[in-house]
Design a protein around this nucleic acid. Structure first.
Length: 401
DNA sequence: AGGTCATGACGTATTTGCGT
DNA sequence: ACGCAAATACGTCATGACCT
């Protein structure tokens, strides 16, 4: 008896739902089939990896912006005047992999599988999304074989928390398979989580990607499968072999990668054109970022631009004072600290700075003494009181002689 | 049973400038 | 020239957020 005939005889014993599932796995034209999801089964060494390829025009939008607009924003790094941790200057935008994975959980134990790898990238006229699905637990070699064959053509990762989550895990799995799969290229890596936190942690309840999408990228997800459901859907897929379970997972994963493009574009816009596009709060945080990155010029110019802002004139002044002092422009630094204390801002810190500057650099000890006592009056903790008292007493002692 | 980074609280090393 | 205290720059440690 042929296989077909056997199946036909068996059919009558199946329930209706089982029949539907069976047809979904075998009929390529129906909803939820591999073909309908643009997904191809690729074999390597007897193992299958499902590869889904999606291409979209640069004129398509993800949120309010077209991919062409996003690419233009990212391209602007190439003409930027300052160094920055997110600067891709010198790296073609087409060489970036906007990389993300799906796993069966957040914990790092042996029970957690990395079952979906993917990246979006810019080609000449399109955005291309490639997704590599693990067909079953022991088919990892095929997964990494096909993923690496494509990924190695590119050279810089862009991720959201990928430095701490996706990439170390991928490296761990890859090292188990290193005899059987291509070597792991040494990618450069831009991670967007920490920069996003720098800009927005004070104004957003959370800096997770979905909050950023909603609040900062203008991206609305309709009927999205939340991340926490992804593991269950994958378990169902493996157990029942029905590709339909992966449809919403593919969509979720794809949206994550496209949002990485949108987020990198947004951060690029804000950092490269802070005066034109960033809010006062964003500008202040970008200035602090420049300062931390050793870009005093860029920081200085942004702090200056905030002196007539509504919420940041004094904070910006305070930072300008620090920068001027570092540049040994002591008289100008003192002006900034004076302006702060006139407004009652950061009084202890600023009076202390004034006392230091007048004692050591402007050499007016009588003023240094007065400012030390002002710092003492403004002190709020024992630690501050002790330090201010000590300073005041020492300068007074100097003056007596 | 993870890794990265910002942040803040402390501790330490090196340098600077003062007073003797 | 010297010792000392202050200032600054650099480590270290702990904590929390984020990823499915």
């Amino acid at each position: 008896m042929s296989i077909k005939a056997k199946l036909k005889r068996f059919e009558s014993h199946m329930s209706t739902t089982e029949k539907e599932k069976e047809s979904a796995t075998t009929n390529n034209n129906e909803h939820g089939s591999w073909e309908q999801m643009n997904t191809e089964a690729c074999s390597f060494d007897g193992m299958v990896c499902y590869i889904r390829t999606t291409r979209m025009s640069l004129q398509e939008k993800h949120g309010p912006k077209t991919f062409a607009e996003m690419k233009a924003a990212i391209d602007r790094w190439d003409t930027s005047a300052f160094a920055h941790p997110l600067s891709k200057k010198g790296i073609p935008t087409e060489k970036l992999l906007f990389f993300d994975t799906e796993t069966t959980g957040l914990s790092s134990g042996a029970g957690t599988q990395m079952f979906l790898l993917g990246f979006a990238s810019f080609t000449e006229k399109e955005v291309e999304v490639k997704q590599y699905l693990l067909s079953k637990p022991d088919a990892e070699v095929a997964l990494y074989h096909f993923f690496l064959a494509d990924a190695k053509k590119l050279d810089h990762l862009v991720t959201f928390n990928g430095k701490a989550f996706d990439w170390p895990r991928l490296k761990t799995r890859h090292s188990y398979l290193r005899e059987a799969v291509p070597a792991l290229p040494k990618f450069g890596h831009f991670d967007l989580l920490h920069g996003s936190r720098r800009l927005w942690k004070n104004e957003l309840p959370s800096c997770n990607l979905s909050t950023l999408e909603a609040e900062k990228l203008g991206i609305k997800r309709t009927a999205d499968t939340p991340s926490y459901l992804v593991p269950m859907l994958y378990f169902d897929f493996v157990r029942e072999g029905n590709p339909a379970f992966m449809e919403s997972v593919f969509a979720h994963h794809e949206a994550d990668m496209l949002s990485l493009i949108a987020l990198y574009a947004k951060l690029s816009d804000l950092i490269l054109d802070a005066k034109g596009q960033a809010s006062d709060a964003e500008r202040f945080q970008i200035a602090r970022w420049h300062e931390a990155a050793g870009q005093q010029q860029a920081a200085f110019s942004l702090y200056e631009s905030l002196l007539d802002s509504k919420d940041f004139p004094l904070l910006a002044r305070r930072h300008l004072g620090d920068l001027l002092k570092k540049q040994r422009r002591y008289a100008e630094a003192a002006e900034q600290f004076h302006a702060c204390v006139r407004e009652g801002f950061a009084s202890y810190d600023c009076w202390t700075e004034l006392s230091l500057i007048y004692e050591h650099y402007l050499k007016e000890r009588d003023k240094a003494e007065i400012y030390a006592y002002r710092a003492l009056e403004s002190s709020t903790t024992n630690k501050e009181r002790e330090a201010a008292l000590k300073r005041a007493a020492r300068i007074s002692g100097k003056l007596k002689r």
